[in-house]
Amino acid sequence: MTDAPATLRAGAEALAAPLPPLLAAAEHLATTVILGDHGRRRAGLGDDFWQYRPAMPFDDARSIDWRRSARSDAAFVQDKEWQVAQSVVFWVDLAASMSFGSVKGGPTKADRARLLALAATILLIRGGERVGLTGLRLPPRRGTAQIARMADRLAEDAPTDYGQPETEGMLAHSRAVFMSDFMGNMDAAEEALLRAADRDVHGVILQVLDPAEEAFPYDGRTIFESMGGGVTHETLKAGELRARYLDRLAERKDRLAGLARTTGWLYSTHHTGDPAAGALQWLYRGLERRG
């Protein structure tokens, strides 16, 4: 539908309205106050520090440092420390598994993930931060126009059964949000989180689940089918699968919690049957935290 991004943005604006804008990280603010506009050119210190990185496809020509680039065969870009610290990138899983919703007329997992991601984007941009998406699809930028771009990208569906986190284009020392049901390949999720941690990226992991996925309220003859239609399983005694299913779900949650502890990220689960405001509050507080 042509008005889907506008509708999504309107819902996200309503959800974000009661919350104050997200402030810049206390560490960055303290450094800015102490060093002012003329900080020393040392790694990680001050507003004037520049970090060189290889230019990426989304970089403007005017952002390239031609003097530094002339010393090699590659183009380089200068990133100010405060710009990196104020960059937040989202990976929002919009694969087929996220289209599940057990309540007729209720939100799917993808509906809730889109709403939370865009509401968080609104708060971040109101606080002066740069927001974008992983995978080089939408580099971090400021301004209300970026909200519209985020809405456009978040309205798209991914052509896969299960999503896998992307880390390409993620700036070192920035922050990130990974939002998914994490029902796919956990090895891929672990690899992505460890790569992000190696680049000193801190962030939050929000697992979005439907209440039926937590309760497994099935019994008797049941046909289970993946949302993409690639996997089908029929059983006459669905109730007998409940204990095994719940054990595997618990193992998956424990693995995500362990990854969060290892990488210094935060992890939580949100159910689509619960109010979205609570999850947004958790994201808000989690992104304020550094390290």
Results as ranks from 00 to 15, higher is better:
residue 86 Q to P: 00
residue 11 G to N: 10
residue 8 L to H: 03
residue 112 R to E: 06
residue 38 H to K: 11
residue 189 A to E: 04
residue 155 A to L: 07
residue 247 D to P: 01
residue 149 R to G: 05
residue 35 L to M: 13
residue 43 A to N: 08
residue 202 H to T: 08
residue 192 A to C: 06
residue 144 T to E: 11
residue 276 A to L: 09
residue 261 R to D: 14
residue 209 L to Q: 13
residue 117 A to W: 04
residue 126 R to Y: 07
residue 283 L to R: 02
residue 74 A to R: 06
residue 110 A to L: 03
residue 219 D to W: 14
residue 187 D to A: 15
residue 272 T to G: 11
residue 140 P to N: 07
residue 259 L to F: 10
residue 213 E to K: 07
residue 236 L to F: 11
residue 211 P to G: 02
residue 103 V to L: 04
residue 241 L to W: 08
residue 125 I to H: 11
residue 173 H to F: 14
residue 6 A to Q: 15
residue 21 P to V: 02
residue 197 A to Q: 10
residue 278 G to A: 09
residue 127 G to N: 06
residue 196 A to K: 02
residue 165 P to Y: 11
residue 146 Q to M: 13
residue 164 Q to K: 12
residue 237 K to R: 15
residue 60 D to I: 07
residue 89 V to F: 00
residue 197 A to I: 08
residue 106 G to W: 14
residue 138 L to G: 13
residue 97 S to A: 04
residue 6 A to T: 10
residue 214 E to R: 12
residue 281 Q to P: 09
residue 205 I to N: 01
residue 238 A to P: 12
residue 182 F to N: 08
residue 82 W to C: 01
residue 198 D to S: 08
residue 81 E to N: 13
residue 269 T to L: 00
residue 163 G to Y: 11
residue 17 A to H: 14
residue 214 E to D: 14
residue 153 R to Q: 13
residue 44 G to W: 10
residue 264 G to H: 00
residue 53 R to D: 07
residue 288 E to T: 05
residue 61 A to R: 13
residue 237 K to Q: 15
residue 133 L to D: 03
residue 131 V to P: 13
residue 96 A to V: 02
residue 157 D to L: 13
residue 32 T to G: 03
residue 240 E to N: 13
residue 17 A to L: 15
residue 91 W to D: 13
residue 17 A to K: 13
residue 213 E to D: 03
residue 255 R to V: 01
residue 73 D to E: 07
residue 197 A to T: 03
residue 276 A to C: 04
residue 80 K to Y: 04
residue 264 G to R: 05
residue 223 I to H: 06
residue 121 T to Q: 00
residue 176 A to I: 08
residue 91 W to Q: 08
residue 42 R to S: 02
residue 226 S to W: 10
residue 162 Y to V: 10
residue 171 L to M: 10
residue 238 A to Q: 09
residue 10 A to L: 12
residue 104 K to T: 05
residue 210 D to G: 05
residue 25 A to G: 10
residue 95 A to H: 01
residue 132 G to L: 05
residue 238 A to R: 00
residue 95 A to D: 06
residue 188 A to R: 11
residue 14 A to F: 04
residue 82 W to S: 11
residue 171 L to Y: 07
residue 61 A to D: 15
residue 31 T to N: 11
residue 14 A to Q: 15
residue 74 A to G: 00
residue 270 H to F: 14
residue 12 A to T: 12
residue 98 M to R: 00
residue 114 R to F: 03
residue 207 Q to F: 03
residue 147 I to E: 03
residue 74 A to P: 00
residue 212 A to I: 05
residue 175 R to A: 14
residue 114 R to H: 07
residue 155 A to F: 07
residue 87 S to G: 02
residue 291 G to W: 12
residue 207 Q to G: 00
residue 62 R to L: 15
residue 276 A to V: 03
residue 171 L to S: 01
residue 75 A to Q: 07
residue 123 L to I: 08
residue 120 A to Q: 12
residue 144 T to S: 11
residue 252 R to C: 06
residue 210 D to W: 03
residue 288 E to L: 10
residue 140 P to Y: 04
residue 56 M to D: 06
residue 252 R to V: 04
residue 172 A to I: 05
residue 77 V to F: 02
residue 189 A to I: 06
residue 6 A to N: 12
residue 99 S to H: 04
residue 37 D to T: 12
residue 105 G to I: 06
residue 120 A to P: 03
residue 187 D to F: 00
residue 166 E to C: 05
residue 277 A to L: 15
residue 37 D to K: 13
residue 7 T to I: 15
residue 76 F to K: 05
residue 81 E to S: 09
residue 290 R to H: 09
residue 97 S to R: 00
residue 33 V to Y: 14
residue 79 D to I: 12
residue 110 A to R: 08
residue 223 I to M: 14
residue 58 F to M: 08
